[in-house]
Nucleic acid binder design. Structure first.
Lengths: 301, 301
DNA sequence: GTCCATGCATGAATAGTACTCATGAACAGG
DNA sequence: CCTGTTCATGAGTACTATTCATGCATGGAC
């Protein structure tokens, strides 16, 4: 009857209208800007009408776009309600699910969000394994799934993208003041915390800095534990480069301040790696879907 | 936020609930039964709940299914309204579009449905070419698109499936009475109309008849024009095998009656073959989408 | 006015999904 | 019990969406 409207496209259009920017929308939906652009092109072509007003920097909706937006509001309201309803009534899975994650991610972010999930599925028992070496236990059958930003090395694992891991450079407010840090170049003079002694840890940042602003980092302090590094930074020991999720609280409380927000180090993509076994498959899906449902903002992207 | 619900799947679920049968639903949506089955499997797996009650012959909805159905009603109502709205407001295309079809299909079905389309797009001029040999004019640039059940021989043509062409065996009511036709085998005794002298035309039917009922057709009357064949049959000259769409009116008026409804000869698939030229591309899409929007029932499938 | 930064568009290659075809199993009617 | 439906399942394929890598335009700073 219709064949005219495609849900993912509409969802994109909807959040695009809300965010007001292709890039922002893409980040919110865990897509690339290109994907959003393509999707909107398809949608407009399908509709046969221009829906967006591109005026350089800002963008708005056309008359038709506004009407479509209203339709979207309704549609997504009922749709989300329906899927919420389904989620509630789905037969509760019983049994055990063994989840792995790196300590840093697991202890900070993951734990925070597991509570509601466990509350919703009281019959599910979950074991968490937080370590740095997750692959071994996964292979040894100790784990059903892990959450990490590995490359996809094992074909036997199903990979489901979760969110983008963004990095921030940060330091204690007093530290910034003391060293008068304003541009990346200023970092050359002050101590920086690194996971490794050689300081290769900071390459991710350096590569994102425009050529002429390149700081010559020299005074590295090596700490091989992220949590410890964060505490050290909060005490004013130096600047650090960490996944944003690991310092959400510190940033909020003001223990740390983010430096150079304009510079965006390369992102990694956290994914869920599922082991393909029948026994825990349903439970894996349950958790996977729950985590996918969380907005990227919850992970600090 | 959701990622839980997929529109095509819901549409399938929706019409499945209405038709009450996988096969019927498939026919309505121009898919195979297999596709419907797969889609429902995915949907239920996604929802985590059984939505359908399979009880052998008949099928019903579970409690959750019923709720989802209601959500669908709402969603599709607004969605269809929205796309209707868009269609109305899309910039009217101007210019000429050259359409080809086989005489039989073109004169009977196509014409019947072009009126509303032309009314909706008054600035569009359409030329129809109805002939048996359509490929030549298409290549010679005389046509922008054709509607037929060709195989896809030219890679330069974009193929868009439209509907399934089903075949019926029919004859005049008096003819059936006179020859006491009840089972396929009975056809052996009476004259049958064929497009070709050898009677290969009837193979499509014969191949669908279970082995032991195979009639030995012997008395062929060759008429190389379908319309003429239909008139002949209506006069009681013999039984005929034709695409259902070509005799919709005759069947309705009772000039012809369908024989052996249980036997379904192999179907062909009508498609729209579009020439990839910029000039008429938009207009091609307009027409294509309009025809796709018509329910298969309108074409007699 | 020129330069640079940012935001969107475009095109080719790829990954992932949904369809079809060909079977298989279960159930009802003769 | 056999025959004919109806739905499920699995392998192969076609197609669609996404990404990556660019290109183009606009707005702001100097």
């Amino acid at each position: 009857m219709d064949a005219l409207l495609d849900l993912p496209q509409l969802r994109t259009f909807f959040t695009l209208a809300q965010t007001g920017s292709f890039t922002a929308c893409a980040r919110r939906l865990n897509r690339t800007q290109s994907a959003v652009s393509h999707a909107m092109a398809r949608l407009e072509e399908l509709a046969g009408v221009r829906l967006l007003e591109r005026r350089g920097r800002s963008l708005g909706l056309t008359e038709e776009g506004r009407r479509l937006y209203q339709a979207c509001e309704q549609v997504f309201a009922t749709l989300d309600a329906a899927s919420e309803d389904l989620r509630r009534h789905q037969s509760l899975s019983k049994g055990r699910l063994r989840v792995g994650a790196t300590v840093e991610f697991g202890s900070s972010i993951l734990m925070r969000h597991m509570q509601p999930f466990l509350a919703a599925n009281p019959d599910l028992e979950i074991d968490f394994t937080l370590s740095h070496d997750l692959l071994a236990p996964l292979l040894r059958d100790d784990l059903d799934l892990i959450i990490d930003c590995l490359e996809h090395l094992l074909p036997s694992l199903k990979k489901t993208p979760l969110f983008r891991e963004t990095y921030v450079v940060a330091c204690a407010p007093a530290f910034r003041k003391a060293h008068r840090i304003r541009v990346p170049g200023d970092l050359g003079r002050c101590p920086v915390l690194s996971l490794d002694k050689a300081g290769t840890w900071w390459n991710r940042f350096l590569m994102a800095v425009p050529g002429r602003d390149q700081p010559q980092l020299e005074r590295f302090i090596a700490i091989d534990h992220i949590r410890a590094m964060i505490h050290a930074a909060a005490e004013g020991m130096g600047a650090l480069l960490v996944p944003r999720y690991s310092v959400l609280e510190e940033l909020e409380r003001g223990d740390l301040v983010a430096l150079f927000p304009a510079i965006r180090p390369a992102e990694d993509r956290f994914s869920i790696y599922q082991k393909k076994v029948k026994a825990s498959q349903e439970k894996q899906k349950l958790l996977t879907r729950y985590l996918q449902g969380l907005s990227p903002a919850e992970f600090g992207s």
